[in-house]
Amino acid sequence: MNATPLRNIAHTRTGDKGDTSNISIIAYHIDDYPLLAERLTVQRVTEYFAQLLDPNGPPVRRYELPGVGALNFVLPGILRGGVTRSLALDAHGKALGAALLDLLL
Rank of each mutant, 00 (worst) to 15 (best):
S24T: 10
G69E: 00
A98F: 08
F73S: 06
D90I: 15
R7L: 11
L35D: 04
A88K: 15
D54H: 11
V68M: 10
I25S: 00
E38K: 12
L53P: 04
Y48I: 10
T12H: 03
A37E: 11
Q51I: 15
K17Y: 05
L6R: 01
T4V: 13
A3N: 14
R80C: 15
A3S: 15
I23S: 00
V45M: 09
A27H: 00
A99E: 12
E47I: 06
N22R: 05
I78P: 01
A95S: 11
R39N: 14
T46N: 07
L101R: 01
L35I: 08
R80F: 15
D19I: 09
Y63N: 13
D19A: 08
V83W: 04
K17H: 09
R44M: 12
T41G: 11
L65W: 06
V42S: 07
F49G: 00
N56Y: 14
T46C: 10
L101A: 02
G77S: 04
T46V: 08
R39E: 12
R85A: 13
V83H: 09
L6C: 03
H11L: 12
N2K: 14
I9P: 01
R44Q: 14
L104H: 15
R61W: 14
A27C: 03
A37G: 12
P58W: 10
N56T: 13
A3I: 14
R13T: 03
I78R: 04
R80L: 15
L40T: 09
D90C: 15
L105M: 07
